[in-house]
């Protein structure tokens, strides 16, 4: 059974068709790249999956229909995401940002928290320990007490990734994690993505513009253009598909870049 199945997803804003008949399935442990030119509807597809946009069509997560749930319920099921523009909470420390990502896993009630009962203390300490494991996983030890808004953009992106991982998700949606990163930061990011894939065995849907990274890392690629699917399959085939090359990569050949 597929981890996430999207069947015939449509999204319209007034007269504008953003997504038209989008269908794909992500298999367990798969790194699934979603690519396409600007405005193709990649982020809109993410917003439909995390239910910030209400698209028509069916989305199944491990067999369960999630197309009528609230964004909060989707997060609680274990679908975590990062954002294209990071969207950290700038005045909170890195630590608190990541702790906030665990909110769906907290179980004490406000009354207990007001009195700060031993249960709350135990819970906070337990989750802090989990957050520290994630901080170690993505190598953010040096900045854990820094204000998120004061950090360089590249590190903010990694904090966003850590916040998504904090949910202990079963599916991770990465929205252009490499955009705006330097070459070194991209190398780090590629390492973290591979580490998530191999150590945590998390299936990921990954929106990406860096074709070299996609070609190197992705298991399968799905190409969108104007909300419609152009091609889908293993990176080697898809990226050399003539329509994809024409619509997205321009007329230059992919080989020209890596040469």
């Amino acid at each position: 059974m597929a981890e996430l199945g999207v069947e015939n997803l449509n999204l319209r804003f007034g007269g504008l068709t953003v997504l038209e008949g989008l269908s794909f399935a992500v298999e367990p442990g798969e790194l699934f790249a979603l690519i396409g030119p600007n405005g193709a509807g990649k982020t809109s597809a993410f917003n439909c999956i995390s239910r910030i946009y209400k698209g028509e069509g069916r989305i199944r997560f491990r067999g369960q229909d999630i197309s009528a749930l609230s964004p909060r319920a989707v997060a609680r099921l274990g679908i975590a995401r990062t954002f294209q523009h990071v969207e950290l909470f700038p005045h909170m420390s890195v630590l608190d940002n990541i702790m906030t990502g665990r909110h769906a896993r907290l179980s004490t009630n406000p009354l207990q928290r007001m009195l700060f009962t031993p249960a709350v203390l135990r819970e906070e300490a337990k989750h802090r320990e989990a957050v520290e494991r994630i901080i170690e996983f993505v190598e953010l030890e040096g900045v854990r007490h820094a204000h998120a808004g004061a950090l360089p953009f590249g590190i903010q992106k990694i904090v966003g990734l850590a916040r998504a991982l904090a949910l202990e998700p079963s599916l991770l949606l990465l929205d252009e994690p490499s955009a705006g990163l330097t070459r070194d930061e991209r190398d780090d990011l590629a390492r973290f993505i591979l580490r998530i894939k191999h150590d945590l065995k998390l299936p990921m849907i990954w929106i990406e513009h860096d074709m070299q990274m996609v070609a190197d890392l992705a298991d399968r690629v799905h190409v969108l253009n104007y909300g419609r699917t152009l091609a889908s399959g293993v990176p080697g085939e898809v990226l050399s598909h003539p329509e994809v090359v024409a619509a997205y990569l321009g007329t230059a050949k992919l080989d020209a870049r890596s040469a």
Partner: peptide, 20 residues
Amino acid sequence: GTGRAWAAIHAKETVAEALG
């Protein structure tokens, strides 16, 4: 957690909701 949730809502409501 309540304080963090409030701060998150204060900063970015949609993101807070997407975090559960």
